[in-house]
Design a protein around this nucleic acid. Structure first.
Lengths: 201, 201
DNA sequence: TTTAACTGACTGACAGTCAGTCATTATAGT
DNA sequence: ACTATAATGACTGACTGTCAGTCAGTTAAA
């Protein structure tokens, strides 16, 4: 075969892209390394020159997904607006078809559940500081009163990322809108948002 | 080989038990069907006489785990005590070493993440009615005031089962006690528990 | 000339198959 | 009641196809 040498970074990216596309179609388990290299027109050894195992390619994909999602949380926390607005945006943008670059089909394939879970746990844990920042801002603005800052942030993130992820809980499409607004209200009360809820004492 | 015929229910149970024990040691992926039948001293065909695929044995295991956990929620909901007490018991009993029969080692093996997830989702969804019942009781007792009954139950269950499951989030042992009590307080406020929290208005 | 990227045939392990075996149980003939 | 015979269904184990991972050797580029 006509042999082409490329810089490792370039080849790695090619391999990752091809893998991602196949994982989206067939799922991780159902995609053979031989499928990936066939799609690229390289030998199987090439794959193993750049990646130690088939699983290692997942680590690479997971990392890039996590970074992307956590970045959004950071930007939101550091951007402008009231805490309440930021939180609403955060909720609105979760569990939707958009937001994902092209990984959507890949992550939500039933066979990739465990990768999905890894991503979510990482995203939740790494986003905690940014949500805490938003909550602190809300406290300063007088909108929120919070006792357990970190745990509250963790719990909100868990709700957003696990409950509203279409790959975990598969809520019917029409129930989602209602669920999301209910969730927003529940969280507002959790945050002691005095403008959102007056207890009936 | 000396051939022994047994009733399918008996054989199935034998196979499930052997599989469970091996999954605990080595994980699901790392256990070959040939390992399972070797342990039992039967032929490989016997396995495939009783189960269509290797994966099917998981469905059987998952089902029995789910039933067991959901049963506990139902008993709690139908038993005696105030709603607040019941909720406390529910929180206390989650994410601990005990409570599990022998599946512990099996579910928390890193290689079984996806089975674990299936169990959790099923448990959450099937427990919702029982937690709702507890919340309704709390409303009647005047302890709780709740707007979105179902969503609140879903969110509480998600918190309990995902956040506090040692196989998903791996919190350090000493942080757990504090986290659990913080979680209880967050939930009490979420439920508008007027005896637990007075907003600083 | 050296080195780093690449090759592709090969290996071992595994999930799943299948044609056939044997123990058990039901039925019929005496 | 007491066998012979048939039918059933649990069980066998050698076999197949597929796949992750290996490695000794090849070639393009620096």
């Amino acid at each position: 075969m006509a042999r082409v040498s490329k810089k490792p970074e370039v080849r790695r990216k090619e391999i990752i892209d091809a893998a991602l596309s196949l994982f989206s179609e067939k799922g991780y388990e159902q995609t053979a390394v031989s499928d990936i290299v066939k799609k690229l027109g390289v030998a199987q050894g090439t794959f193993y020159y750049h990646f130690k195992t088939k699983g290692e390619i997942i680590a690479a994909i997971v990392d890039s997904l996590v970074i992307e999602k956590v970045d959004k949380a950071r930007e939101l926390a550091n951007g402008g607006g009231t805490a309440k607005e930021k939180l609403a945006i955060f909720l609105r943008g979760s569990g939707t078809r958009e937001a994902e670059p092209m990984m959507l089909g890949f992550l939500h394939h039933a066979n990739n559940a465990f990768i999905h879970q890894k991503v979510l746990v990482q995203v939740v844990q790494q986003s905690v500081p940014y949500v805490m920042k938003i909550l602190e801002q809300g406290a300063e603005e007088g909108t929120f009163t919070i006792r357990h800052l970190q745990e509250t942030a963790e719990y909100i993130l868990t709700g957003i990322h696990f409950m509203f992820d279409p790959g975990i809980f598969e809520w019917p499409e029409d129930a989602l809108t209602h669920k999301r607004s209910a969730f927003m209200q529940i969280i507002e009360r959790m945050l002691g948002d005095s403008f959102a809820f007056v207890p009936f004492v």
